[in-house]
Design a protein around this nucleic acid. Structure first.
Length: 277
DNA sequence: TTAATTTGACCATA
DNA sequence: TATGGTCAAATTAA
């Protein structure tokens, strides 16, 4: 965990609060309107969760960066070829991920859309799975972004809002800013402008994919038994797990003196926060 | 013509 | 040795 300035800590607190609220909202929506009835609303809640998660991850950057453990390089000739084809880039050999290596995070969603631009590089039939597993890497890989994701369609058809199990590996580093990975730089400021969620939801709906909801789980492709030991698995967010960010306790905060309270009652000094970021 | 996707082969890991 | 992750040529779409 990187040390955070006080303003960043405030933003982190607010985003954490927003995240928890969105998670709670999602739960309420799911409870109130099972199946497809509340998909659009759940979609919005899920997008809020994603936005909050990204900001939180951004603010927390500097800590653990994921599961790219050092593995042996695939083949010497591949390394040489990579060096030839990308002479201007630092040599960052594309290590083959260990089978079942823990993801940075794993998400169940009704959509494969997450606001990032991915390029599919492989598809594989997996033992015991009805659907093939799809492999994507960040479209900005050429800029050195090594983020990848693995998409597995769930075998259980009972919950369309959790039709896909998406495992993310690595972090988006394109341009040193996650926003650079996003579609068309149309994403408004994630912290302040709630339109961020609206945009992302609209983007999702335009993709004609089913609505999504989120839940972090560690499971096999069919959603039954865990395929790997959960050792070392540390979800970056969860609607069911209490977030513990910089030790902030929302329930126990002294709200009358808290910047969070200032935010809630409209007196929060956004300018100083934005200037500090 | 270029960019993106598909798909079989290759290869690392368990 | 089986399996899963990645590569890269072929194919398709824009």
């Amino acid at each position: 965990m990187a040390m955070l300035g006080s303003s960043s800590a405030v933003v982190l607190e607010l985003m954490t609060m927003g995240y928890q609220s969105a998670a709670y909202l999602g739960e309420l929506l799911r409870a109130a309107s099972p199946a497809q009835a509340g998909d659009e609303q759940q979609e919005l809640a899920a997008e809020i969760l994603r936005c909050c998660d990204r900001v939180i991850a951004k603010l927390n950057r500097g800590g653990a960066t994921g599961a790219t453990t050092g593995k042996k390089r695939k083949a010497a000739e591949s390394a040489a070829a990579a060096a030839v084809t990308s002479p201007s880039l630092p040599v960052t050999p594309t290590k083959r991920r260990a089978r079942g290596a823990e993801a940075v995070r794993e998400v169940r969603s009704g959509t494969t859309t997450d606001g990032f631009i991915w390029r599919k590089y492989g598809q594989k039939e997996i033992n015991g799975c009805k659907h093939p597993r799809l492999y994507y890497r960040c479209a900005f890989r050429g800029q050195g972004c090594l983020a990848t994701r693995r998409v597995q369609q769930s075998q259980s058809q009972d919950d369309p809002a959790a039709a896909f199990v998406i495992a993310y590996y690595g972090e988006h580093t394109c341009g040193g800013d996650a926003a650079a990975c996003r579609d068309g730089e149309l994403m408004p400021p994630a912290v302040i402008n709630s339109g961020a969620s609206s945009f992302a939801a609209a983007w999702n709906m335009a993709s004609r994919e089913p609505a999504s909801s989120l839940a972090v789980e560690r499971r096999s492709c069919d959603g039954d038994a865990p395929s790997e030991t959960s050792q070392g698995w540390s979800p970056s967010f969860s609607s069911e797990v209490e977030l513990d960010v910089v030790g902030f306790d929302l329930a126990g905060a002294d709200s009358s003196a808290s910047p969070v309270w200032e935010f809630l009652n409209g007196s929060f000094d956004w300018e100083s926060v934005i200037n500090s970021l």
